[in-house]
Structures are given as structure tokens and as C-alpha cells.
């Protein structure tokens, strides 16, 4: 087969490179070892003003060659442009595997790329490996994460897969000092752009405290949080513990929490050292987003809540009864602040 090598499509963010890009590079290096792949692991980054900082970061995270596509037209994500660039690159270089983060942009342009290249895309993988024939086996969740299935794409190349941020978790710092960095010119590709979609701009949500995906401690609230006052107590608890606040659907619907705080298959995956679920019953789609947490503590007044089955510490009680006492108890002793 002529297609070879593993590519990771990295993503530029407002503050650098998205963490999932590094998670994917670590995974790509692991797959390379596992499958004794000869070709180097390649990082492809599309964006604007891509200086040495970016190539250094990608190299540190495991890239063995780097392709930078640097152009003002790539400042905002635009599916048509991004997919056209990736298609041109992939057709020219013929990678065997392309990994992308299942971010808002990646979730959208991976399938477009797949359709353009007439190949298969495995969406939102939770794990992946190479089988004996060297084909990518992508493990994907279905039915809200209740079921896991292997997806293969044996007769088509490249094999494309997306992975949600935080799922792989591990980021490795590699010590090599040098790797080839190539800059890919897209003038011809942009000339063909029909301009059917134009990006006008992007507005970032104001972030409070630690980003959820990176937090070492997460306090999450759900249906059992019965009032805004109790929700605010939960936020206080998270602040006292130096953790981030997550939620399930009901606090979001109430307007207390933001979309970016939702944990689950249709939200974020977290793997903090400590997860405290308050008033969360534990529907499958939420459990899939927190199952990899270290210590799981659950407080729910319904003793039959499924969350208790996946918890290390169970407390059958009303959130309103526990939260004020817990905050008070922790504040008594400053040493209890943990992260």
C-alpha cells in the first residue's frame, strides 16, 4: 500500500495549540511504535502567524515532521477552505492515518475531508490501536456511550479518526531537538475557493477559573440542585477546593451553567483526580464523560441513582444539607485547599 504514516491535524487556539492536539501526537507515537510504522509522525497545523513557538510545541509533543499552513485566510475556521487544504495535502502526500480532535472544527471538517477523499471517518473515538494487518481499529461509543464498537476502514485510505478532547488524557514531552518543518503554500487552493461561506468573527466565552478539561478537581451539579442558591454553593465549594464546575443538562437549562461546562458524550470529557457529583443521577451519557476520574464522590438523595454504581464514595443525602457544612468545614482549615 502506498499510503503511509500517521498525521495529526493540530488546531490553533486563541492561546496557542489545543491540548487535544498534543494528546493525539502522544497517541500517534504510541501507534507508530505498536505498528512498527516507518514513516515519521507528522503534525499538520493550519492557522495564522504560525511562528517557531508552534513548531517547537508540536515537536515537544511528539511530532517528527511538521507541516505548517500559515495564511490570514485560515484565521477563523472555515470548513470549505480547511477541507480543501487538507484534501490537497493528503492527496499529494498520501498518509495512511489522519487523526483530528473532535473539537467544534474537527468534528465538522473531518467528515467533509472523508467525503472529499471518499474514505471512512471514525467519529469521537475513545481509543484506537493498529491490528495485526496494520489497519486502524477505532473504538467508538454509541447509544450515549452505553455500547462501544470497533470501527475499521480496511479498503480505503487514509483512515480518518476524531477523538474528543480529554479522552486520551495523556500528553508526553519528547526530548528530541530537531525535526523538519515545512511550510505549505495554499495560494492556488485559495484561488479556487468559491467564497460560499465567509467567517465574520469569533467571540470567546468568558472563562471562570480552571478550564474544566484540565482541572484536577471537578465539582459537578445536576438535576438534584433545586435552586440557584444551592447552585451558587456548589460554585463556592469548587472555588474553595480550587476546582472547576461542571454540570449535566438541567443546570444548563436553568441558565445557571454554560454549555462549555456540560460533562458527557454531548459535552466534555473530564478526568480529574477528584470528581464530586452533587445531585447527579448518572445517566449513561454523563457517566461516559467522567468515568476516568480518579476518585469519584457522589452526593444524591436518591439511593437508587446509577451514579452510585460508578462511585468510590457514596453519600445518600440532599445537596442542600451537605454543601454548606462542607464549605464551612473546608474553610475552617486553609490547608484543605488542594489544587
Amino acid at each position: 500500500m502506498t499510503h503511509q504514516g500517521i498525521w495529526v491535524v493540530a488546531e490553533q487556539t486563541v492561546s496557542g495549540i489545543s491540548r487535544v492536539s498534543f494528546e493525539l501526537l502522544a497517541k500517534a507515537r504510541e501507534l507508530k511504535e505498536q505498528g512498527r510504522v516507518q514513516a515519521p509522525v507528522t503534525a499538520v497545523l493550519l492557522g495564522e502567524n504560525l511562528d517557531d513557538y508552534y513548531s517547537a510545541k508540536l515537536m515537544e509533543a511528539g511530532a517528527e515532521t511538521i507541516i505548517l499552513v500559515d495564511h490570514p485566510a485560515l484565521r477563523y475556521f472555515q470548513n470549505e477552505t480547511y477541507a480543501a487544504v487538507l484534501k490537497a495535502l493528503a492527496e499529494e502526500r498520501q498518509p495512511s492515518i489522519i487523526l483530528m480532535g473532535a473539537t467544534a472544527a474537527g468534528s465538522d471538517f473531518a467528515p467533509t475531508l472523508g467525503a472529499k477523499l471518499r474514505t471512512g471517518v471514525s467519529a469521537h473515538c475513545v481509543d484506537m490501536r493498529l491490528n495485526e494487518e496494520g489497519h486502524l481499529v477505532a473504538v467508538v461509543p454509541a447509544f450515549g456511550g452505553k455500547v462501544l464498537g470497533d470501527i475499521l476502514c480496511t479498503n480505503f485510505r487514509p483512515q480518518i479518526a476524531t477523538v474528543r478532547p480529554g479522552i486520551l488524557g495523556k500528553v508526553i514531552c519528547f526530548m528530541h531537538k530537531q525535526c523538519p518543518v515545512e511550510r505549505f503554500d495554499i495560494t492556488d487552493i485559495l484561488a479556487q475557493d468559491q467564497g460560499r461561506v465567509k467567517a465574520l468573527g469569533i467571540t470567546y466565552e468568558e472563562m471562570k477559573g480552571v478550564p474544566l478539561e484540565e482541572a484536577e478537581l471537578v465539582v459537578a451539579g445536576g438535576f438534584g440542585i433545586e435552586s440557584k442558591e444551592i447552585w451558587q454553593q456548589l460554585e463556592t465549594l469548587a472555588a474553595v477546593l480550587g476546582g472547576a464546575v461542571g454540570c449535566t443538562r438541567p443546570p444548563l437549562d436553568e441558565g445557571w451553567a454554560k454549555e462549555s461546562q456540560m460533562i458527557g458524550t454531548s459535552g466534555k470529557s473530564v478526568r480529574p483526580k477528584i470528581y464530586i457529583g452533587v445531585g447527579i443521577s448518572g445517566a449513561t451519557h454523563h457517566i461516559c464523560g467522567m468515568k476516568d476520574a480518579g476518585l469519584v464522590i457522589s452526593i444524591n438523595k436518591d439511593e437508587k441513582s446509577p451514579i452510585f454504581d460508578v462511585s468510590d464514595i457514596r453519600i445518600t443525602a440532599d445537596a442542600a444539607a451537605i454543601l454548606p457544612l462542607l464549605i464551612e468545614g473546608l474553610q475552617k482549615n486553609e490547608d484543605d485547599v488542594i489544587c
Binding site: T13, V14, S18, Y76, F77, T103, A104, A105, P165, V197, K198, A199, L200, G201, I202, T203, Y204, E205, M207, S260
Partner: peptide
């Protein structure tokens, strides 16, 4: 988008 809203 991720923690953001894009306008198109």
C-alpha cells in the same frame, strides 16, 4: 465553537 461562538 469550543468555548466560543463564530459568526458566518
Amino acid at each position: 465553537m469550543d468555548d466560543a461562538v463564530g459568526e458566518y
